[in-house]
Design a protein around this nucleic acid. Sequence first.
RNA 1: GGUCCGUUCGUCUAGUCAGGUCAGGACGCCAGGUUUUCAUCCUGGUAACAGGGGUUCGAAUCCCCUACGGACUACCA
Length: 507
Amino acid sequence: MNQQEVRVRFAPSPTGPLHIGGVRTALYNYLFAKKNGGKMILRIEDTDQTRFVDGAEDYIIKSLEWCGIQFDESVVKGGEYGPYRQSERKELYRKYADELIEKGWAYYAFDTAEELDKLRSEYESRKETFTYNATVRNNLRTSLAMTQDEVKSLIEAGTPFVVRFKMPEDDELVMHDIIRKEVKVRTSALDDKILFKSDGMPTYHLANIVDDHLMKISHVIRGEEWLPSMPLHVMLYKAFGWDAPEFAHLPLLLKPDGPGKLSKRDGDRLGFPVFPMEWKDPKSGDISSGYRESGYFADAFINMLAFLGWNPGTEQEIFSMDELIAAFSLDRVGKSGSRFDPDKAKWFNHQYMQSHDVAEVANQFKEFLAEKGIAAADQYIQKVVGMVRERATFVADLWDQSSFFFAAPETFDAKFVKKRWKENSPELLRGVRVVIENHSEFITAEVKPNIEQFVEEQGCGFGPIMNIFRLALVGAGKGPDLFEIAEMLGKEEVLRRIDYALETIKK
RNA sequence: GGUCCGUUCGUCUAGUCAGGUCAGGACGCCAGGUUUUCAUCCUGGUAACAGGGGUUCGAAUCCCCUACGGACUACCA
């Protein structure tokens, strides 16, 4: 088993958008596969027709693609072990259910949902819990309590039935989990799970085990919510006589505050996305925001997610996908749930904003500008980005920091005016204007010394003059070095803005 | 209720397997510095071994108990 090729799978159900916990599970699978020279498989688990959501599968595929998580085999790419959609493998499962019945590891059950509901409430009224297991299976409408002929005639008459696993009465199961080490459980605490539903489809448990076996999956890396069903799955492998894969159950992602696991509501409440990309619910039409649309870089998003539950054991925090692959190990995945921290997510994006290629960021900013109907030369946009990116976390922040490069201010920040615009400000600003006008172009190296000289003559200090000059060019007390701004704008534009400020700002 | 899993600064975590540095880093927060504005940046600070018993010269680390948190408990995945 261990010397086999590493093959892992990400197996989502197309019941809605993938949330960041799911993305992290996919990421860890991917990192583990690549690290070990193995294969990554995408399998769609759509055995529950009632929960199928239109567009969910496409959303999952596109989201992972945006994240840079690639599959070697999938519903899109195909592969040796396809099909990769369980609904297309439907025919296959029945014979495995039959095999288990023949071997005595499973049985038919003819109880209706109503009968079971009734039983459950009866037990509840006695303050007991109904468990479908060895204590009751011989007294219910199961093939275990009937003759073969009875069973046969019921099935031939078209009576709906399910197939249940015959869980051993009281064995101790000792299992191994890569993250949790030894996990022990007594089978008496388990129930006879349904493997095959009356609608002709397998349940998750059967389909999952059969497909993992058929697809030669070596490691099952999934969320902790599956830990309670590991015993059933291990028993299923045993019943079939197959080697079980290694298991690794990942800790959950928790709310930033309060108890419980992260949910869509937390994102709405605290103002951060829980989905990788924007999702529009096909039924309600509700739109949920996505990391991509919120301005996160895919690599920053992945870097942040990788660190929720895993760390390299060094002090390095910024990792490219390739570096993550090189450093990743399941041994360094923690055991306890991680609270999601929106502030740290922003910090990661800010880091990537600084380190990305300027041209790449400028390209994204150009699209942003285009949506506002603003066009500018690539060179110009790149220069602007280079000047203001250190004060931006997202591409949208770039606009807040640089709008004055694309349009002259029409209004002036009232607070800043109140604080900096004094009696003598118009006079000083006019003085600055004169200095600039005496140059044929605004070249910092030439203009700056003259302004400094002017400041000295006035004896008022550099600050007050720069502040009102900034107010004229920017319209507020923000932005990068003022001389750089002026040089970018050019002499004529600078003079125009000074004139406009002089006639507009009143105190 | 039952079963299983977990518990180090507010948060993500290193250190636990092979007991012995003032329990380390990052985010956040606070203070100072740089600065023509706003930011960035730099420096410093804040702050944790859930509790109780053992074992030991010595425990975050090993053992037991308690508390708390979480997941699961469907003809859903």
